[in-house]
Design a protein around this nucleic acid. Structure first.
Lengths: 375, 375
DNA sequence: CGATCTCAAGAAAACATTTTCTTGAGCCGC
DNA sequence: GCGGCTCAAGAAAATGTTTTCTTGAGATCG
């Protein structure tokens, strides 16, 4: 009984396989494989015949078998903190688009900040034989990381990762964007600027906070201890953190937040008071999620481009996976950040508008890069 | 050369395989397979020895090989419209949790309302050999569906799908929730109620709109043609649709929206006018996405529970996949909807508060099911 | 003109499993 | 006491590819 003997003892899969194509094109399965994989040593006429047969029988190569023998699954793992945080769907989308364009599939998982869940997730990824994993949690717990690192496939971390040969790191340049934000506020006349950080167990939260204090001291501005409040990158905590700030004897005139969700929480907190944004208090976010431009008022924020992040992640993974990749040696991949000025920042009350206007002309305000569909 | 001869010409995979376990436990690979898959005919002592060996060598069964030979990938496809629409991440999260709990992996894809993209997505899913697909787009184009339907694996559609043996449908009961919303507004004293629909090429959008008009006529309330505006379930179009309504000579006193994002757009549109929510205009959403309870004011909305939806989808898929499933014959899976009253609805201006209060006591207002972490 | 060299294409091995088939030991009944 | 029956466990087939090895025809060169 020939291997193409169609025993079909199996449940489903009436789908055509490589033997069907080979038989129809009157070639061997090896030749079909070569044609389908674009190996150039095959005779053009034969190749044409094979492609025709592929078309006719509707052949789709079986990914499982392919992966089994080649040892490469063409699946990229993508680990995020929580998919329900609006920043991540945007990242997921971009990542998926890029990965698919390169012929990879994406296996997504969220840690929900839970060690057990994370461990199970990593196990699942290992078992599915991912070719590489992008850990975009901006500060995953070290313990679980070790599990991943031991297996030798390529890894990409956002912000910081262990210094190992198979690990690449996306170095987000928080400094630039946050400095811009501080300078923007200072130029408007703000002196009392507060900062709501992320959860400090996250490395990235510490980095962002430090970028803030550094920028402030560069300008000779003091930051009272009470002006730095720890949040957790959620809207809820942003709200409560702002309430903490509002209880101070001397209020800040501007608040910079470690991410946009926090800033949105701040807007909510202020909405429940008599203080107006931006007239009484200016608010700056971080990330530039899509929601930011639709807040009331539209949020001035530091953009960390999802597309740029996803692009670097996929490139860096490919550099580790595909033999002979041109950027195979690159360990650090820089990601820029920059301020996007919208309407949640303005002169502090009491400053002369005219004076302020000179420093920060209205025309300089950036609008979103215009791709709204409707009106 | 024995099969366990560790040729290892392959690139990665130093991982232990079934032969390693078998050798260590001094049994055949068939026995290992049986133990790992929980087939009960194996001697308990042997099984114990096998599990010990599994533990010792750190054996993880290779999913690719498993899928190849068994014909089941243990992957569920999940197709959504757009992952960046906040409703979907919540659905994805729930779906993933349930699927993983049942030993399945999830392959997610978004159509972005693009036929070509959808077709490519379906092809990818077929190629990866998914065991079933949940199409949660609430109205995917028929053309692409056909491609899926031809292959005989189980399918689940939200709202409506072709009447075929391998297709199951989640029947969302829009009527109940929307009727509740209309009755709630009517009880508050509203008579002029407008509706902003979804894109009418989506079946679900039509269904929701019809549920609205039906409920209105049940109460003997007229709906002028101009009070029904077509949106597209986006915040942007919700805003512009509300602007259209505000240009009318006689304004509505309440607006029901086909989804929450639209309602959020409406809030934004009204924020730019002198009209206050809920004093001047009441707003009702649909979906009850997480964001809804954090809007200003918190949104009264009709809840379509993600968890319920995801649960039904996974169950329905399993019913189709797993032989002998108890609910194998169930074609329609009901999903309930119900009104969640928050603060974006109130008496129309001019109505006597006291009278209204009798009809809708403040105490009846539901607060979110309290799981805020912080404050 | 024959021996070697090149190279395209087929044959077969390898991949890690599940599942069917086979074997052989223990047990029961006659 | 022995033939058949049961059943656990091993042997081997099967899964659909990629990749290495083999083959054989045509080209090249001495």
């Amino acid at each position: 009984m020939s291997p193409a003997g169609r025993l079909r003892t199996n449940r489903r899969t009436e789908a055509a396989n490589i033997h069907d194509v080979a038989r129809r094109a009157r070639v061997s399965i090896a030749t079909v494989s070569r044609v389908v994989n674009g190996i150039s040593t095959v005779d053009p006429d034969l190749a044409k015949r094979v492609w025709k047969a592929v078309e006719e029988v509707g052949y789709l190569p079986n990914t499982q078998a392919r992966a089994l023998v080649s040892g490469r699954s063409r699946i990229l793992g993508l680990i995020v903190s929580e998919i329900t945080n609006p920043f991540f769907p945007e990242l997921v989308q971009e990542f998926e688009n890029l990965a698919v364009a390169q012929g990879y599939e994406v296996m997504i998982g969220s840690t929900n900040y839970d060690a057990v869940r994370t461990e199970a997730l990593i196990r699942r990824m290992l078992q599915r034989g991912v070719d590489g994993v992008a850990v975009m949690t901006f500060g995953i717990e070290e313990a679980q990381v070790q599990k991943l690192v031991r297996h030798e496939f390529p890894l990409v971390f956002a912000d910081a990762g262990p210094d190992l040969p198979n690990v690449r790191v996306l170095k987000v340049n928080y400094g630039d964007g946050i400095r811009e934000a501080v300078q923007h506020l200072a130029a408007l006349g703000h002196r009392r600027i507060a900062f709501i950080s992320g959860p400090l167990r996250m490395r990235t939260a510490v980095t962002r906070r430090d970028a803030f204090t550094k920028s402030m001291s560069e300008l000779g501005l003091a930051v009272p201890a009470a002006f730095i409040v720890e949040g957790d990158h959620s809207m809820e905590r942003g709200k409560s953190a702002m309430e903490t700030l509002m209880a101070l004897a001397e209020l800040p005139t501007a608040v910079i937040c470690s991410n946009d969700m926090t800033a949105i929480g701040v807007l909510h907190a202020l909405d429940e008071t008599t203080h107006k944004v931006p007239e009484d208090i200016s608010v700056v976010g971080f990330d530039d999620i899509r929601l930011a431009q639709f807040m009331l008022p539209p949020l001035t924020t530091v953009r960390m481009s999802c597309k740029e992040l996803a692009d670097a992640a996929v490139q860096a993974l490919r550099a580790g996976i595909e033999p002979g990749h041109t950027q195979a040696g690159q360990k650090e991949w820089p990601i820029a950040t920059r301020l996007v000025v919208r309407r949640s920042t303005d002169f502090p009350r009491g400053t002369l508008p005219a004076m302020g206007k000179l420093k920060q002309p209205k025309a300089a305000r950036q609008d979103p890069p215009a791709k709204q569909p409707g009106a």
